[in-house]
Amino acid sequence: MATEGKIDPMHQFEVQPIFDGFTLFGQQISFTNSALWMFVVLGLLYVFMAGGMKRELVPGRWQVMVEGIVGFIDNLILNSIGPNGKKYTPWIFTLFMFILFSNLLGMMPFGIIPGIHPFTVTSQFTVTGLLAAISFSIVLIVGFWKHGFKFFSLFIPHGTPLPMIPLIFMVEVLSFLVRPFSLALRLFVAMIAGHILIKVFASFVIQAIDAGGASWVIALLSIIFIAFVSALELLVCAIQAYVFALLTTLYINDAENLH
């Protein structure tokens, strides 16, 4: 990273093996920093949930927080899918919490501790892509399982004039097939953009200080900008997790209830 006082803003997204694992299908499966941070997310999520498991009649602060999030996801599903959406709660919960914790963990300033390099799991297209693929598979499986070939009627909106049906059908199928990619890309890009922006301005700070003279003003402005972007990014972390979960419920709603 630090050659000639320069910061490579892409370095933070590199997946590096921590220790070698085993080979699967001819590919090395090593325990990487990405996997490490996934497990950190898992551990934090477990601690968070376990703290709300006291099951007291009069809840403490922690229990209120956990119950609030569970209630929030229950409400999201109830509003988007309806009462028969209850069976999707575990998946939506998994999505929302995993993404939220990964996003927030990536924003935490662990970098100030020497030797620790924070890694945002959700800034990897492989991760967001797999999550989107699972959500999309659920939509497909539920749709064809429940409605069979009638599921294709999803692609023909009500009241479409007969001659328009083939064209509309093509457009709707295309937009349907784009869904998993838009789902995955949205989260991935939102995460990566903020992180790159912060790193770029961080490199400005170092360069400005190295240059000396009156350029410390630029360093100061850059730091202020970083503070604002960090605050904005914290908001984006929560919003992107919510958007991913919300869109998944909406897509599942299409499959569950057709129209």
Binding site: V15, G21, L24, F25, Q27, Q28, I29, S30, F31, T32, S34, A35, M38, F39, V41, L42, L45, Y46, M49, A50, G52, M53, R55, V66, E67, V70, T89, P90, W91, F93, T94, M97, F98, V121, Q124, T126, V127, L130, L131, I134
Partner: peptide
Amino acid sequence: VYLGQFFWLLIVIGIIYFGIARNMVPKI
């Protein structure tokens, strides 16, 4: 890295899904 990423992600997601989302959330 994609196979490794999928592998670890599936393990973590699986633990969250079966361990937390299907086990702890209903209790809450």
